[in-house]
């Protein structure tokens, strides 16, 4: 395996775009690791938050986009609240996820979940929990997801079997349509 060629790996545009979209100055990060230390998802990450920050500093777009971590971030903002350099780290994680998604990047299960959720919102104006589960199972083929919870929650009779459809569902649908149209136009 070759060592990382610092010149070859540096994508200046990528670094500047992350900085602009997130509104954060990445050169402030001195790699103390406090973000990694407090991240609830750290143990499940393939690349720690502070390493993502470092890769962005180096302009290593490929490394950042190949990492699963930005997808897994739960946006709890512990990193942001404790960063000694006042970097909104969670917003940086959001930003690289958004950028990755715009370029067609996907996470195998998370995208399916988010898309399922947003589809129910697009169709009825509000999120519909049973619908989200059904769509998610359909998309991922993981038909047994959380089946153990069914006997716990179903008797509570909290989950309606039909979605709440709002009068303004068309207005919400138009938000999604314009969003997608504009994205397609670049």
């Amino acid at each position: 395996m070759d060592s990382i060629n610092l010149e070859a790996v540096r994508d200046e545009d990528f670094l500047r775009t992350v900085e602009k979209e997130s509104g954060q100055n990445l050169s402030r990060c001195y790699q103390c690791g406090k973000c990694t230390a407090g991240c609830p998802c750290g143990p499940a990450y393939d690349m720690q938050v502070s390493q993502v920050m470092r890769a962005i500093q180096l302009g290593d777009k490929q490394a950042v986009f190949e990492a699963a971590s930005p997808w897994l971030c739960v946006s709890c903002s512990t990193c942001t609240a404790r960063c000694p350099n006042e970097i909104d780290v969670a917003r940086v994680m959001d930003t690289v996820r958004h950028m990755n998604r715009r370029e067609g990047g996907k996470h195998p299960t998370l995208n399916a979940f988010w898309d399922s959720f947003l589809k129910t919102v697009r169709l009825s104006g509000r999120a519909y929990e049973l619908g989200v589960m059904a769509l998610y199972m359909l998309r991922t083929g993981k038909v047994l997801t959380d089946m153990d919870l069914a006997p716990r929650i179903m008797p509570k009779r909290k989950l309606p079997f039909v979605p709440h459809v709002i009068r303004g569902k068309a207005a919400v649908g138009r938000i999604f349509k314009r969003f997608h149209d504009l994205r397609m136009d670049g």
Binding site: E21, V74, S75, D94, T95, R97, H98, R101, R102, L110, F113, W114, D115, F117, L118, V121, G125, R126, A127, I166, R167, G168, K169, A171, V172, I175, F176, F179
Partner: peptide, 25 residues
């Protein structure tokens, strides 16, 4: 009256503009 979903985490995770628009309504 006739409030809609804020987009929750899925919108926030997908795109800042989409998320803000769903909230803005």
């Amino acid at each position: 009256p006739d409030w809609s979903c804020c987009g929750s985490t899925p919108a926030h995770a997908t795109d800042a503009v989409l998320s803000a628009a769903l909230s803005a309504r």
